[in-house]
Simulated assay, not measured.
Amino acid sequence: MSTAADRWAAFPGPTKVLAAARELLENGKTGPGVTVRVTLDAAERDQVGRILGMAWEASTVPVTLGRLRKALHGLDDTLEDLLVRLGGPLDDRVAKRELDRKAAQDHLNNAYAVLTSVGIPEHAVALARTRRWLEYTNPDLAESRAQALALLWQHLPAADRPLPELANSLFGNPHHLDRDADLGRLAARLLAAAHATDPGAAAAAAGTALSADAWRQLWASVGVSCDEVSATVLVLNLPLAGSGAPAAIAAAAAETGEPVWLTARSLRRAWEPGPGLHTVRVCENPVVVETAAARLGPHALPLICVYGRPSIAAWLLLEGLAAAGVRLLMTCDRDTAGQQFLTELLRLPGAVEWLAAADGVYEESRLPDLLADLTPAPLAGT
């Protein structure tokens, strides 16, 4: 049976007010001072004022829950009872949101637990949780990402497998672990963090994991190759020995004094410094190698060019030479970038700056000095 409140509620103005009041109550906003925010025209305000009173209707004050409750109480009704009669039970959206939040947190806890369960170090999983790697951009993907990472981890280290082949065998897509793929980026960060020895180092390693060289090094550390023919280093007359490809390639090129590019792939094969190789000069720019080859040919002293920031191929070669006790003479451009490269290179054991006293910001400015130093003593002055 319709009550006075029900009849009042049927008008457009009260309908707006009650709909807004329901929204407030369902979201836990129940205080008497809570404003019921609605836009009412003159006719609608007149309709609402039929129970709120002429004083309210003539004023400019908004409807509040307290004022609405008091008016309905005067009709022997309550706001909650009226709303239930009109639209069914009130939802407890606050409780529902809390349940949803707890369910989502449990879902994430389970996803990160998957990583720990396959042996990924706890400090790496902790970093992943702090950085929200699994739920990044889409929390719904956390579990599937965790399962994919767990599957990958269980197949590492791999036995000299190309990354696309590994991705295809595990996920049916050769590009699933690419550097621009979601899972590939996530896997690289997790690998970097896992290989670090402490949380601070893990965070730093993960932050640089997606650079081209760090990417190749990370996967190489677990037996996976990543387009290692694209990482190169330029050499001239560099005598290498051993059964691997670098020795054969370098020897063939040195016979004619021809510069040659060695790849990271070739430098992972067996090689060592050739007999009598005690010192190697290292430059930044290919023009030094090209000019030395043109003017000195096979007589030029051994020279390596890192071609800007050293690639993984350059590091493989230089670290191998340094570890074998070869003295490395380093030079780069003396601009900001070049000095950064030089600082990195001089960290190698036994490395010193090459012709530090020679004038010139760029290597091209010092080219006569560099060429003179690349000339063997018997040919000096010829």
Rank of each mutant, 00 (worst) to 15 (best):
D91C: 09
L267C: 09
R85L: 05
A322Y: 01
A193L: 01
A252T: 13
H299E: 14
A20F: 07
L317R: 03
V125R: 01
A142N: 00
R132Y: 00
A380P: 00
H73P: 00
M54W: 10
M54V: 10
R85E: 06
A253Q: 05
D369C: 06
D335H: 07
D213K: 06
A209K: 03
A254L: 03
P302F: 10
L82Y: 02
P376N: 13
A19K: 14
L52S: 03
A248R: 11
A203Q: 14
E44R: 11
E135K: 02
A19C: 12
H155P: 05
V63R: 06
D213W: 08
N109H: 12
T331N: 14
D92L: 08
L99R: 12
R129D: 07
E344H: 10
R69S: 13
A203I: 01
A214P: 02
W271C: 08
A351I: 10
E258N: 05
L318G: 07
D92F: 00
N110A: 13
P199M: 14
Y362D: 13
R132K: 01
E122P: 07
L303E: 08
A196E: 09
A192V: 03
V306A: 05
L79V: 01
V17C: 13
D227Q: 14
V233Q: 11
R145A: 07
A292M: 09
L65V: 11
L316H: 11
D41W: 14
A251F: 01
Y362V: 09
V287Q: 13
A58N: 12
D369Q: 15
P89E: 14
A358N: 02
I249P: 11
V36C: 09
A254Y: 01
A159T: 15
A124V: 05
A357E: 15
H107W: 00
L166F: 11
A5H: 06
M330Y: 01
S225G: 15
A43P: 00
P157M: 08
A58Q: 15
A20G: 07
A351M: 06
W261Q: 15
D76I: 04
A377V: 11
L303C: 10
D198K: 11
A337W: 06
S59Y: 02
H299Y: 14
V94G: 08
E272L: 08
S117L: 13
P32R: 12
L79E: 01
R93C: 05
K70P: 11
L234Q: 14
G119D: 09
L82E: 04
L218D: 01
R97Q: 01
T331W: 13
A248I: 00
